[in-house]
């Protein structure tokens, strides 16, 4: 089986199917990560798709082809961030009444709704750091590189996220 690095090189050479193979291999990770950043599964899939399109457009800029996955997850976060920014701008422009509108339904099972909603109460960076380090098992240093943030920022985001969850859950 070809490594990520080999597939990236093949895709850069224009070899048919190489990018599709990368997509098939990393689709699940990208979509899971996007779902942890956005509560709406439809929007999460849109974010993952945009991240893959970004990856295709910028493949020649990837300095370490063997680290395609971490680069892709960074692209997922950046896409989610820019979408959330433009949504916030839209909200500010269109008026506060949108805030009162019902949010998109949670797709995950009924039992998980509360947990997912609680998780969505965290900031985007906090969610990203927790999702990478706790959900995916990346080290803090790897997550920091992926997110383009200092190591200390990632650690403090995780600490603050847990504190906030504890507060929301009423834990001492």
């Amino acid at each position: 089986m070809l490594t990520d690095g080999e597939l990236v090189q093949a895709a850069r050479r224009g070899q048919k199917g190489a990018f599709t193979a990368l997509m098939t291999r990393h689709q699940s990770a990208a979509r899971s990560f996007a779902r942890r950043l956005s509560a709406d599964p439809g929007e999460a899939d849109d974010i993952a798709q945009d991240a893959f399109v970004f990856a295709w457009s910028n493949l020649h800029r990837l300095r370490a082809p063997e680290r395609f996955k971490s680069w892709l997850l960074g692209a997922v976060l950046n896409t989610a961030r820019s979408r959330m920014r433009s949504r916030a701008r839209r909200r500010a422009r269109d008026g506060a009444w949108l805030d009162a509108a019902p949010q998109a339904a949670q797709a995950p099972g009924e039992a998980a709704v509360t947990a997912v909603q609680l998780f969505q109460a965290l900031s985007l960076d906090q969610r990203a750091a927790l999702a990478l380090c706790h959900g995916e098992g990346w080290s803090h240093a790897e997550a920091a590189e992926m997110l383009g943030q200092p190591l200390g920022t990632v650690k403090s985001n995780i600490r603050r996220a847990k504190e906030k969850l504890r507060t929301l859950l009423g834990e001492p």
């Binding site: 899971s32 779902r35 998980a112 997912v116 706790h134």
Partner: peptide, 14 residues
């Protein structure tokens, strides 16, 4: 809570 979130968002149906 985190375990629930990971379970609910892992491996979405492709």
């Amino acid at each position: 809570v985190l375990s629930e979130v990971w379970a609910a968002t892992s491996d979405p149906p492709a």
